[in-house]
Amino acid sequence: MVGVDVVEVSPPYDHADITAMLANRVVLEALSALARRRLDAATGVPWNPLQPLLDGR
């Protein structure tokens, strides 16, 4: 991944904050995936889909 760009989030037009919350979730998911990939590379232990993405091991 080279970069992540969030566009078209305009709080004045998003009265229920649905778009803002979705944009927040997408950014957090991308950062979590990058952190997990780095942890897997450092420890050599692949992620188990039955565990949380970042379980603090």
Rank of each mutant, 00 (worst) to 15 (best):
A33I: 10
W47F: 13
V9A: 04
P11H: 05
L50K: 12
V9H: 01
G3E: 05
M1N: 12
L22S: 07
R57Y: 10
T43R: 01
L50E: 15
A33P: 04
V26H: 10
L28K: 08
G3I: 00
M21S: 00
D17Q: 11
A35Y: 13
P11R: 15
A30F: 10
N48I: 02
P49D: 07
A33N: 13
L22T: 06
V45Q: 14
L28C: 11
M1Y: 00
A42G: 05
A23F: 01
G56N: 13
V7Y: 12
V45T: 15
D5H: 11
A20G: 06
G44Q: 01
V6C: 02
W47S: 10
D55G: 11
V27C: 03
Q51W: 02
D5K: 09
P46F: 08
L31S: 04
L54S: 10
T19Q: 04
R37K: 13
V45N: 13
P46H: 05
I18Q: 11
G44W: 01
A20C: 04
P46E: 08
R37V: 08
L34S: 07
V4Y: 05
R57I: 11
M21C: 04
A23W: 01
D17A: 13
N48P: 03
R36F: 05
W47D: 11
L39A: 15
A20W: 01
I18Y: 08
E29G: 06
V27T: 09
N48E: 13
W47G: 04
R37C: 06
V7T: 08
T43K: 03
H15W: 00
D40I: 10
L54C: 12
P12C: 02
I18V: 13
L53S: 10
L50H: 13
A33F: 10
P52A: 11
A23L: 03
G56T: 07
L22N: 09
M1D: 14
Y13D: 10
V9E: 01
P12S: 01
G44Y: 01
P11Y: 00
L39M: 12
G56A: 12
E29T: 06
A16P: 03
V2Q: 07
D40V: 11
Y13C: 07
R25Q: 06
G56D: 03
N48L: 04
R38A: 13
G56Y: 15
W47M: 03
S10L: 12
R38W: 11
L28T: 06
L54F: 06
A41E: 15
R36L: 10
A23K: 01
Q51D: 15
E8W: 01
P52W: 13
